[in-house]
């Protein structure tokens, strides 16, 4: 009978940089990013995929990283909030969040921006309804969402990035 292992070697590309790491099979992608790579911009808000604070982009698609195992991300390309700005240059969406007060406490903001940017990447001119659908998996308790929607709409009008 085959022996199955609880520790695995994975290769993951995060924000363009390749990492080779040994991870326990029970480690989530969220724990991998935060605890192993020390990329703490991605937050945990619930641990069961309901709040979206841990949203990252995996192979071009948003996922709640609390419900993905690091092992499942072997070979994947991951984008996190830390990879959005290029040095001092913020993305158009980040600038827009600041301008329209899309962030208050800031804890949902990284996940929210990943969801919104992913929407703009696949649909540069989303309708309000499409924006709402794309971010409704990201809970925010501070802003009441309206300023966030405005921030995304403003980018959509002007053109992404």
């Amino acid at each position: 009978m085959k022996e199955y292992t609880k520790e695995l070697n994975i290769t993951v590309k995060v924000n363009g940089r390749e990492y080779h790491e040994s991870v326990p099979a029970n480690m989530t992608l969220l724990q991998f990013l935060r605890n192993k790579l020390l990329l703490t911009g991605t937050k945990e808000g619930c641990g069961i995929g309901e709040c979206g604070a841990c949203t990252v982009v995996m192979n071009g698609k948003t996922v709640t990283s609390c419900l993905v195992l690091a092992a499942e991300a072997d070979g994947a390309e991951i984008r996190t909030i830390e990879g959005e700005a290029k040095g001092e240059k913020l993305t158009a969406l980040q600038e827009s969040f600041i301008k329209y007060h899309g962030e208050q406490c800031g804890f949902c903001t990284p996940g929210m921006i990943m969801s919104a940017q992913n929407l703009l990447d696949r649909n540069p001119k989303p309708t309000r309804e499409e924006i709402v659908e794309a971010i409704s998996g990201n809970l925010c308790r501070c802003t009441g969402y309206e300023p966030i929607i405005k921030a995304i709409e403003a980018v959509a009008e002007k053109g992404n990035r």
Binding site: K2, N26, A71
Partner: peptide
């Protein structure tokens, strides 16, 4: 938290069915 667990990603259906027969 997720407790320690083994992980296996089979490359074929045969391997998968075999693995799924373990305890």
């Amino acid at each position: 938290m997720i407790k320690p667990v083994a992980y296996f990603k089979p490359g074929s259906l045969k391997e998968a069915v075999e693995a799924l027969q373990t305890e």
